[in-house]
Amino acid sequence: MTTIDLRDRALSPAALARPFAALGRALLIAVPVLLVSTFITFLLGGLTEQDPASVVLGDSATPADVARMREVFGLDRPLLARYALWLWDALHGDLGASWFTRIPVAQSIAERLPVSLSVAAGALLIAAVLGGVSGVLAAVRQGGLLDRTVTVVTSVLATVPGFVAAVALITVFALLVPVLPAGGWAPPSAGLATWATFLVLPCVALSLDAAADVARQLRTGMADTLHENYVVGARVRGLPGWRVVLVHALRNGAGPAVAVLGMHVPRLIGGAVIVETVFALPGVGELTKTAALGGDVPVVQGALLVTIAVVLVSSALVNVLLVKLRPAARREI
C-alpha cells in the first residue's frame, strides 16, 4: 500500500495558496456587490420626492435657505458626482454626517455596531454548537429515536421566522417564567453576567433556523462519512469511538455544514433588524430602519457599507475554513 505523507502535501505551495485564492475570489465578488448595492441606495435616495433640506429647515424656510442647505448637503451636484465623492470619502474612513442630526455616520455606527456584532456572533455560536451537537448525535444514532427526533425538531425550527421565535421566547422566559429580560441592552462594562442576560433571548431567537440547517447538513455529511473505509479501519485498529467520530468523521463530514453556516451569516446580520426591533436593542439594524423611514440616506448608506464589509469578512473566513477541510475530505488512506 502506498503511503502518503500528508505533512508534505499540506506544506506544498499549492496547499498554502488555496486560502489566499479563496480570499481573492471573495474579494472579486465583493467589489461589484459593494458598488452596485451602494449605488442603488444612492439612486433610490435621489428618486425620492422628499427634500431633506426642506425637512430640516421646516415650513418657515425660504427658497434661498433651502438652496443653501442643499449646497451644504451636496444635493446641488449630479447624482453620479455625489456618489463618486461619497465613495472616495468612504474609502478614507469618512462616511459623512446625518442629514437631520448632523452626527457623523461613522460615530453613530461605531456606537451601535458592538450591539449588532454581539447578537450576530452569539447567534452564530449557538447555531454552531447546538446544530453541531445535534447533527453529530443524530449521525451516530442513525435510524434511532434520537435521529428521528432531531430530524423532526430541525424540520419544525427551520420554518419558524425569527420574530415568531422572539415573541415565543419573551412570552415563556420573560413573562411566564421571568428569568430573563424581555428587552433592552446593557454594555459589557455593566458586568459580563448582566450583558449576557440581555443577549440570551435575541441570540437564541436569531439562531434557531441556522442551527436546524447545520444539524441536518452535518447529520447527512457524517452519515456517509461514518461508513467510509478509513473510518471502519480506524475502528478496527481499536481507536476510541469518540476519537473516530470527532477527529476522523467530523472533520471530513463537516464541509456542507460549514458552508451552510457561512450562507446564514448574511441572514443573521439581516435578521438582526427584526430581532433588534422586538427586543429594543440599539444596534445597527435599528439605526438603519429609523434612518430609512426618515429618508436619512447618508446613515443608510454608511450602515449598508459596514454591513457588507462584515458579511464579506465572514464569507472570506468561511471560504478559508472550507479550503482547510477539503483536503481532509479528499484524503484516501
Rank of each mutant, 00 (worst) to 15 (best):
V56L: 08
L287D: 07
G255R: 13
A280W: 12
W195Q: 03
L146P: 07
A174S: 12
L145M: 06
A61F: 00
A166M: 04
A257G: 04
W185V: 08
L201A: 05
A292T: 13
V33L: 15
G295N: 03
A121Y: 05
R112N: 02
V179R: 07
Q50D: 07
V33H: 09
L322G: 08
S54K: 02
D89T: 14
T225D: 06
A292S: 11
V300A: 10
V129E: 02
L85K: 12
N229A: 14
V313Y: 10
D147R: 00
N252S: 11
V313N: 09
V297T: 14
V105W: 04
R219N: 02
A165N: 00
I103G: 00
G131M: 11
I109H: 05
M69F: 03
L145G: 06
R330E: 09
L137M: 15
T2A: 09
A97L: 05
I170R: 01
A174G: 06
A90L: 09
M222T: 14
A90W: 06
R25W: 12
V164R: 00
R82K: 10
F279C: 13
A120I: 03
R251K: 14
W88H: 12
L113W: 07
A212D: 02
R267N: 09
T151W: 02
L95K: 05
V153W: 01
V278R: 01
P178W: 00
A67I: 12
T41L: 15
L246Q: 05
A15K: 10
L192I: 08
E332S: 12
G96T: 10
A223M: 05
W99A: 09
F100W: 08
V133A: 04
